[in-house]
């Protein structure tokens, strides 16, 4: 089924026939091939697909950290050629700076944001650390935090500067179920209140259905779009909602049918 019928004029992020290859040790790898996609302002887009289908690559391209080999990526009509403060990335591996404590890590992006006083920056950093449940850990250095805590600090760091576009690579994968369920609610709140555009990668179909306006299913070798699902459930959505579970089951079935052998980690 096609995406929302949308004219390109009001769509914010436009990918047209994007192809990206890597010349790695194992030869030329086509990470993504011929991807065309439009992400509208204020849309929550979720990318799912088996490991190695180019999800992280796609985020790097959107962030401007990598350049396309073919095709184009445009933000508000201008080519994306370099990283910018309007598109923050939360990386798959936690990229916290080991020489800064948790609060300073969250402040890093805020300090680069003009037009704020130092007090406002500190207040914002504390607010987001509190949101992810780490108010008491602001003086802790990354090595003193657990894997899940580090991921939560990274989440706070990417939310704090309040970017227009948020690119998140499996942000909840290392969290316990309870924290995760709470953050699903918080992310949706931030998303609707702040009118953000979010592109999120996940391996969890239920999470995808809970959060996304659209779920894009990618297939590997080379990474291509296989199918796009529109999720029209009302927000805020709860992960335990039966309607959501039914939809997730449908997508999982469709996915299994697409892939000759269902890949691990996709349920």
């Amino acid at each position: 089924m096609p995406a929302h019928p949308s004219s390109e004029s009001n769509s914010q992020l436009t990918l047209r026939n994007v192809t990206k290859r890597f010349n790695g040790r194992s030869g030329l790898v086509t990470a993504v091939e011929d991807i065309s996609l439009q992400v509208k302002e204020g849309e929550f887009l979720v990318l799912v697909g088996p490991s190695g289908c180019g999800k992280s690559t796609l985020l790097s391209l959107l962030a401007g950290l990598e350049q396309v080999d073919e095709g184009s990526i445009k933000l508000d009509g201008a080519n994306v050629v370099e990283p910018g403060r309007d598109r923050l990335v939360m990386f798959q591996q936690d990229a916290l700076f080991p020489w800064l404590d948790a609060l300073e890590n969250v402040l890093f992006g805020l300090r680069l944001k003009p037009g704020l006083t130092d007090a406002e920056r500190t207040e914002a950093a504390r607010y987001y650390l509190d949101l992810v449940g780490l108010a008491d850990k602001e003086k802790a250095h990354p090595h003193e935090l657990s894997g899940g805590m580090r991921q939560r600090v990274a989440l706070a760091r990417s939310l704090a500067p309040n970017p227009r576009v948020l690119l998140m690579d499996e942000p909840f994968s290392a969290l316990d179920a309870l924290t995760r369920d709470q953050l699903y609610g918080d992310i949706q709140k931030i998303f609707t209140q702040r009118k953000k555009t979010i592109v999120l990668v996940t391996h969890n179909i239920r999470e995808a259905v809970c959060l996304g306006d659209r779920v894009v299913l990618l297939s590997p070798n080379p990474g291509r779009i296989r199918q796009v699902f529109n999720i029209d459930l009302p927000r805020p959505r709860r992960i335990n909602d039966p309607a959501l579970a039914t939809l997730a089951a449908d997508i999982t079935t469709a996915l299994s049918a697409h892939l000759a052998e269902p890949k691990e980690g996709l349920v």
Partner: peptide, 27 residues
Amino acid sequence: PLYLRAAMTMGSRGWHLWLRVIFPAAL
């Protein structure tokens, strides 16, 4: 490189990148 990528997406460039990221990381 991950530190540089993270810093750059948060808007760090040039001198800021050198003083706040590269130098502390290389210290």
